[in-house]
Design a protein around this nucleic acid. Structure first.
Length: 489
DNA sequence: CTAGGGTTAG
């Protein structure tokens, strides 16, 4: 009986007394009759009415009361949107209450939208990883002559990098230039640098960065992160040093990224130096920096130091636990890795694809069949059977345990194939004496993988197949699994 | 009333 559900407006006691307001009751106690809203234009609307609604909306946000917002919306629509600014506030309120759909519905209904409203909608879509919607709105915005401002540009570029739309992102950059907002502030600049860096377009990223007059830590960190994420660790370190030289202080984000570069370079000395810097700059308890620190030590082979870092972490998150488990598993401490995994679950932190691929690796190294099976069940429960990394770990695990059928089952569940998972499957077959099955996979033209709807995969397979054909008469260039196959033949 | 950068896997 949703109609009868009481709607409580906490601060409304002077209007409604102590009783609860239903939409029908609310209509009776509004400060002005609904019809009379129409006589006010947007500019001359009475101050107190506007304030009345504004307060109401603020209370709804505080109590996260979406149903109350709906009530207000109903009245607004009835009054023919006489209060446009309220419409915008209402959209903002829906967004803050997490109801993006209702915000969008109202957004579409409004005869006019404020630039702030456009920006709010766009950034909400992006933070919900629904960037297609954000881009659609952005394009519509330009068409409807609601000109994007620096707030728009500070968020829209992320949509293009999320969607991997290089050309469109560049075009939006051009539009920012046209509006004179390209490097109007560090917000727009860092968003642009981030986009170009994510695309691997480091020349463009650098050019934008250099044009920003007031550089700050976020701007430079965007470039550092870009280099680090593309495995260009030396360049990441160079930019980091440059930043320090320019007197810009690093923060937790910067340290998280730069320590990850040290880890990948196995540069223990630099890592320890930066560890000192982390402590001195007061980011000792920034969890991402701590996580990277932990990884740095374990990649450099100092497991005990990484355990020490972990002990310091007050609230380890999913990534932290995973890093710890990975480090242990990679350093031959499989049992401890598994016990940490159990502890992670007990502290109600859920595992992800990264975690599973690491614990499965631990199970695989020691051929712990029962444990691995249990983890396989969890993988299925978490809906991660299709993940390429986790899948490859499963294939590897069952292969090592000699259960080829299960390995194949895991293989067939992959939502996407790549060279590694294919190699792992071939290796599992080969290891267990199924030479013919392995060959079928090795040469997809024999019919094993063709005729599936997997297009990207075929591309991948074609590449690896072409490469192997080039080496066909050259035995020494074959991988171990291929050698095994050739012997079996 | 609206804005930017992060750490983990084969």
């Amino acid at each position: 009986m949703p109609q009868k559900r009481a709607v409580k407006f906490l601060g409304l006691s002077k209007w409604v007394g102590a009783f609860h307001a239903t939409p029908a009751r609310l209509e009776k106690i509004l400060p002005l009759p609904l019809n009379s809203f129409n006589v006010f234009s947007q500019n001359t609307e009475p101050k107190d009415t506007s304030k009345f609604y504004t307060d109401l909306i603020r209370q709804c946000i505080q109590s996260k009361s979406i149903s109350d917002l709906r009530t207000i919306q109903t009245h607004m629509i009835k009054s023919g949107f006489s209060h446009l600014s309220l419409g915008n506030k209402l959209i903002d309120a829906f967004l803050k209450c997490g109801s993006i759909e209702e915000a969008r519905n109202l957004f579409d209904e409004l005869p006019q939208r404020h630039i702030v409203t456009w920006n709010s909608m766009i950034s909400s879509y992006i933070s919900q990883r629904r960037s297609e919607e954000a881009v659609k709105l952005y394009n519509r915005m330009v068409l409807e002559r609601a000109f994007p401002d620096e707030f728009t540009f500070s968020s829209i570029f992320k949509a293009f990098s999320q969607l991997d739309l290089v050309y469109e992102g560049r075009r939006a950059h051009g539009q920012a230039v046209v509006f004179g907002l390209e490097v109007s502030n560090a917000f727009v600049g860092s968003s642009l640098v981030d986009m170009y860096a994510k695309f691997g377009k480091f020349r463009d990223a650098r050019m934008v960065l250099d044009r920003v007059a007031e550089k700050d830590v976020v701007l430079v960190t965007a470039l550092i992160v870009g280099f680090a994420q593309h495995g260009r660790n030396v360049e990441a370190l160079e930019v980091f040093k440059e930043m320090i030289d320019e007197g810009i202080e690093a923060n937790g984000y910067t340290f998280a990224s730069i320590l990850s570069s040290c880890a990948n370079l196995k540069d223990l000395l630099m890592g320890m130096l930066i560890h000192g810097l982390v402590i001195r700059s007061g980011f000792e308890f920034a969890v991402a920096a701590q996580t990277s620190l932990l990884t740095m030590y374990s990649k450099c082979g100092l497991v005990d130091d990484s355990l020490k870092v972990f002990k310091q972490i007050i609230e380890p998150n999913q990534v932290t636990w995973t890093s710890l488990i990975t480090g242990l598993s990679q350093n031959g401490r499989e049992e401890i890795a598994l016990s940490k995994f159990r502890r992670m679950l007990r502290s109600s932190i859920s595992p992800n694809a990264f975690t599973f691929s690491s614990v499965l690796r631990a199970c695989s190294s020691l051929a712990m069949l029962e444990q691995g099976k249990q983890i396989h069940a969890m993988v299925a429960k978490y809906g991660l059977s299709g993940d390429t990394f986790t899948g490859a770990a499963l294939i590897d695990f069952y292969g090592k345990c000699g259960i080829t059928e299960m390995a194949r089952l895991a293989f067939d569940r992959l939502s996407k194939l790549d060279v590694v998972s294919l190699n792992t499957m071939i290796y599992s077959y080969a290891q267990n004496g199924y030479g013919n099955e392995a060959l079928k996979l090795f040469n997809p033209s024999l019919g094993c993988l063709v005729s599936s709807e997997r297009e990207g995969i075929d591309q991948d397979l074609k590449l690896s197949n072409d490469a192997s054909q080039r080496n066909h008469h050259n035995f020494s260039s074959h991988s171990d699994s291929q050698k095994t196959l050739l012997r079996k033949r």
